[in-house]
Design a protein around this nucleic acid. Sequence first.
DNA 1: GTGAATGCAAACTCTTTGCATGACT
DNA 2: AGTCATGCAAAGAGTTTGCATTCAC
Lengths: 161, 161
Amino acid sequence: MATPASLEEDSQGAALAWPDHAREVLAQNGYRLGGARAAVITALAEHGCAASAAELHGAARAEGADLGLASVYRALELLEELGVAKRVELGERGARFEAIGPLGDHHHHMVCESCGTVEPFEDGDLEQALTTAAQRQGFTPLAHEVVFQGRCGSCGPGEDA
Amino acid sequence: MATPASLEEDSQGAALAWPDHAREVLAQNGYRLGGARAAVITALAEHGCAASAAELHGAARAEGADLGLASVYRALELLEELGVAKRVELGERGARFEAIGPLGDHHHHMVCESCGTVEPFEDGDLEQALTTAAQRQGFTPLAHEVVFQGRCGSCGPGEDA
DNA sequence: GTGAATGCAAACTCTTTGCATGACT
DNA sequence: AGTCATGCAAAGAGTTTGCATTCAC
């Protein structure tokens, strides 16, 4: 837990940022790195948290990549399958995606109903409670997702609008 | 917490099951009870947990109601707005809906990747941890959702398939 | 050089909306 | 009786798939 979650040591001991990690995993599993996948990896790394497919598509095109939206979906599906990206449902229309750190970087989301911001957060105690709850139910969790809908610190607990 | 969550005392002290509760809330807010809304309320009450709009539509038609899918969505939207039903996203395709008890009955879901079952569960400690985590982040939660994906007790922690 | 990856466009699914008809209070 | 709810059909949004071409290895 002392190492930043976005970095890992590869077999030579060099630090790898997430894009490198993702590319390495692709290669290790026999997948090629075309323009679309490379662009999606870059876009995912730069967006940070909970990006929609359309946002990633737009970001990639803004950086000069010429890729189709379908390829974005295909790349995201593959990255998720390989465990380097994650699909997140925030209760809005459409799914969102984000990079998963090689060390199991893990966070959840708060969606502010007032300003629409999606904020990530980590909470060790919450993770512990989640694990305990799953055990109590005799469930073996492979993944879990927590989403808060409410009002963020900036918008305060005040009334609507 | 001593009263079953699906029952409440109305102003006369009589116990109300959820369908009655839902109808009462509709009336109190000036909404009429047509065939479609009545059928959706019945279907929601009978399905129990995390039903899709199509499932509710089918169930309602199976019971003789002649309603359109659009009306199911309209009814669900209204019931959610009135706080007697809840929309749940389980990471699958499409949203799911369920009744909310008048006393704030509250549970979360475990989705078994092996048998596809969706199981509800309640956990007081987890709720506490969620509340604490939100406070720590300076967030005022109006709603929250927890979804586990994994393997249920029946399927065990074994390998895939 | 070869098979995998990509772009484009069409197909698909889920959900919402418009409008005329019919039903609830 | 008046207004609201509903059914049907069409529109919308997000996502997936088919196929010919291009590109990474």
